[in-house]
Design a protein around this nucleic acid. Structure first.
Lengths: 122, 122
DNA sequence: GAACAACCTGGAGCGCACTCCAGGTCAACC
DNA sequence: GGTTGACCTGGAGTGCGCTCCAGGTTGTTC
């Protein structure tokens, strides 16, 4: 099923997400069915790595924990929630587009201010 | 000097920044030399409006309060700090470019996930 | 001149997303 | 088998950027 089984420390190396945050995400339901060793230690799969990368991508673009929790809950409920998940993702996509547009405007404003400093070199 | 003198409420209408936040920014040194009426009430100038828009632009693109404070402190210190201010702005500009790039990557990932929902309509 | 809204100050409180801690278990190496 | 380090849990603490509150003054309107 899963080729590798990463320890929490290895998972942190792979994803850049701290052990504490990984546990927090799991507690909040954003990472589900995390494997365990016989002794109870977490063992992450390659799929977990990919999923955490998705989580970080969505978080870093402003999706809140609450929204992510909802999205994950829907996923756990089965295929019939696919349309709703598609809707959420499409909605978020639009927000990311807006963020890009806003940042392009910001660049204009910054460049305008920078033009005042034109003659001086750094 | 200043054509108009806006009350705090009018300033909020113009900039979308709440009265509390305006006072907070002033207390933190991000807005300096705010005018006062005889009775001690704040009176904002058109320049203040423009400046608050710059502040919001920088804040919304991830500049921290501390960095903004530093930038404003430099401005208050006079023209000889212009090179340093230019440097800070250029540095922030690069970050905004990175944010745009990261968001473009996010769009790719979102679109990839959305492709799984292709056949179902929302 | 009374009522009511807008303003003032200093300081406390809040929501979010982590991050850290205490007190204990497990594993690996000398 | 003892030490050392990675891991476990539940819960407390933190930092940021606001946001709200109490208690008081000012300004306008009837």
């Amino acid at each position: 099923m899963t080729a590798t089984a990463l320890t929490p420390a290895e998972m942190t190396d792979r994803t850049g997400v701290s052990i504490d945050t990984l546990r927090y995400y799991e507690k909040e339901g954003l990472i589900q069915n995390v494997g365990r060793s016989e002794s109870g230690h977490r063992r992450y799969s390659d799929e977990d790595v990919l999923w955490v990368e998705v989580l970080r991508c969505l978080r870093d673009t402003g999706m809140t924990m609450e929204q992510l929790r909802h999205y994950c809950d829907l996923g756990a409920q089965g295929d019939h929630t696919a349309p709703e998940r598609k809707r959420l993702l499409t909605e978020h996509r639009a927000k990311v587009e807006e963020q890009i547009a806003a940042r392009k405007e910001a660049l204009k404003l910054i460049d305008h201010k920078l033009s005042y400093y034109e003659e001086s070199s750094s």
